[in-house]
């Protein structure tokens, strides 16, 4: 489904959380309440960066039960395509923006006997919302949070107050790390595992859990690839009869949208499968960056996820 009904919002507050992270507050322009959501949900923020329209997903970190505003914490990524840089440099209180309604690809399994949450760095944001939710509805949970240092550990104070003994913090600069083997072999039956953070950490947790015999259905992770910048390329869209140029800082999906062609999307992070597009002709190499396609689908070269993946070569024709 592509035609999301965008919500007109005003940036009501911008807070510097630490030297890398800013928190943005959004209120409805018409003064009403924003839609309720579930912990783990994200919104897609539209950024009109000069000529270029970016749409980037960020987790909602505020309480799902407080719909007077939405809050997102965004870590500045100096190597990225510029979405976080735009937010950090250009977005000021009072600015009008558009956001999508919330969607959740990292929801709690509410049947769980216990929720075991593991966060690394900025991966804490969905857990801030989920812990607010569980505080209200009840449910056993604990959070293991790895940070670089006390200074760069965002929201440690909030979490300490909210979770108390259920919060376990690990500081890199004190050579502390989570003992995943121990943690994942001592959980009661019916526990569900949630992990969000840097890719190496997610991979380590998933490998440990699978190796220890955790069934897939009890494992949940938020693995948003961020679209990376890359060499410009050209794509022909057969159904629309249009050829688009994809710029260095632009994703293929954004280039398709910039040509006025409506394409489905949900997560814009290579995780949900909605934007999957058939490749009709490819003289060159598909640079897959998603977490959606299976290995055999990648090697077959017949599908691409245009929200994060790119192309290098002479000719690319898509069924779009």
């Amino acid at each position: 489904m592509s035609n999301h009904a965008a919500i007109d919002v005003i940036v009501s507050e911008v807070v510097e959380v630490n030297s890398l992270i800013k928190r943005f507050h959004f209120k409805r322009r018409d003064g009403g309440h924003l839609p309720a959501f579930s912990g783990g949900a994200h919104i897609v923020i539209e950024m009109q960066d000069g000529e270029q329209l970016r749409r980037t997903p960020y987790s909602l970190m505020s309480s799902p039960l407080d719909t007077s505003d939405y809050q997102c914490s965004i870590r500045r990524d100096d190597e990225g395509r510029g979405g976080s840089l735009y937010m950090h440099r250009e977005v000021k209180p009072g600015m009008a923006m558009k956001i999508s309604p919330p969607a959740n690809l990292f929801a709690l399994d509410l049947r769980a006997r216990k929720h075991l949450m593991i966060a690394g760095g900025i991966g804490i944001t969905p857990f801030l919302a989920q812990s607010s939710q569980l505080e209200r509805t009840g449910g056993e949970y604990e959070l293991h949070y790895g940070v670089r240092s006390a200074q760069l550990g965002a929201y440690l104070d909030v979490l300490q107050e909210r979770l108390q003994h259920r919060l376990h913090t690990y500081y890199d600069d004190q050579q502390q790390s989570i003992d995943f083997d121990e943690l994942l072999s001592t959980q009661p039956a019916g526990t569900h595992l949630y992990v969000c953070g840097p890719t190496p950490m997610i991979d380590k947790v998933l490998n440990t859990a699978r190796g220890a015999g955790w069934p897939e259905s009890h494992i949940h992770f938020e693995h948003f690839a961020k679209a990376s910048p890359g060499e410009p390329f050209t794509a022909e869209l057969s159904a629309s009869g249009v050829t688009v140029e994809v710029g260095r800082e632009q994703s293929l999906l954004e280039a398709i949208e910039a040509a006025g062609i409506e394409a489905p999307y949900l997560c814009r992070g290579g995780a949900c499968g909605q934007c999957e597009t058939r490749v009709l002709d490819c003289d060159g190499e598909l640079l897959h960056e998603d977490h959606w396609l299976e290995d055999d689908e990648r090697s077959a070269g017949e599908k691409i996820m245009p929200c994060v993946s790119r192309f290098k070569g002479k000719r690319l024709v898509l069924e779009r």
Partner: peptide
């Protein structure tokens, strides 16, 4: 047995 079971038990 299930009451005492830990995750990671096949």
């Amino acid at each position: 047995a299930l009451d005492r079971l830990r995750m990671g038990t096949e």
